[in-house]
């Protein structure tokens, strides 16, 4: 089938203003939107710019706004997208070129929540730390995050306040706050209790809808919030 692909373009090296381009691409219904972008880049217009790597939804490179919703281009099939497909960069981050945005602030926020296990004691028997399947289940959901940014860049609270740490960073804080092996929950909750921390969440649920990993982001934020209030950080 023939697809009409509309792409929001921006390259300040050639034109200070963004504009729309339209391409016609032959595709199978089972092709992905990433295939459409590749067809354009490889055979029609080599200047079209976007990030991608794995091609099947595990590396988090290609979150973009497709037909008005945040999705991974490699996971969204032509048969679902229809014969007119509109692609734009995600919102709330500085666009560098076409679909590629500046991720620096996003990574800074990730780093700010101490996204690493803190525990310098190891079992004296020389083996692994013990953790029950139930204890592990507490953070299973949030350990799936691939940091594509679909949740944060789909969040109205983030659009209106770019300093908000954002759902992705909270998900990664959750990953460690609820890990029975970790010893730094207090410090992390302190960070989460900041004015630009969990309180900014307005439970709009865009993040849950946007997450390509099916993480229940809002639930994770609420669990962290409860923990923050419960421990007197509120």
């Amino acid at each position: 089938m023939e697809i009409q692909l509309r792409v929001r373009r921006y390259d300040p090296e050639s034109d200070p203003a963004p504009h729309w381009d339209e391409f016609r691409v032959e595709a199978e219904p089972s092709d992905r939107v990433l295939d459409l972008l590749h067809q354009v880049k490889w055979y029609q217009d080599g200047t079209l710019t976007f990030r991608r790597s794995c091609g099947h939804g595990v590396c988090g490179s290609d979150a973009m706004l497709i037909n008005g919703r945040n999705r991974l281009a490699c996971e969204y099939l032509v048969k679902d997208a229809g014969s007119r497909v509109t692609v734009e960069p995600v919102r709330g981050m500085r666009v560098i070129k076409d679909l590629l945005v500046d991720m620096d602030g996003f990574w800074d926020k990730y780093r700010s929540v101490m996204p690493f296990l803190v525990n310098d004691e190891v079992p004296t028997d020389g083996l692994e730390r013990r953790q029950s399947p139930e204890e592990r289940d507490r953070f299973e959901d949030t350990s799936k995050c691939i940091m594509c940014g679909a949740c944060t860049t789909g969040c109205p609270s983030f659009w209106s306040n770019p300093d908000y740490v954002g759902p992705a960073a909270i998900v990664n804080a959750h990953r460690f706050i609820f890990d029975s092996r970790d010893t730094a929950a207090e410090e992390r909750l302190e960070i989460m209790a900041d004015a630009d921390g969990v309180w900014r969440c307005r439970t709009i649920f865009n993040c849950v809808e946007a997450c390509p990993r099916g993480i229940n982001v809002t639930r994770a934020i609420m669990e962290v919030t409860r923990e923050v209030s419960g421990t007197g950080h509120g």
Binding site: F116, L117, N119, L127, E128, R130, Q131, S132, P133, E135, R136, F139, E140, S143, F176, D179, R181, D182
Partner: peptide, 11 residues
Amino acid sequence: GMPFNRTEEGR
């Protein structure tokens, strides 16, 4: 910090 799946004994 690797989140391995666990046995009932926690290993």
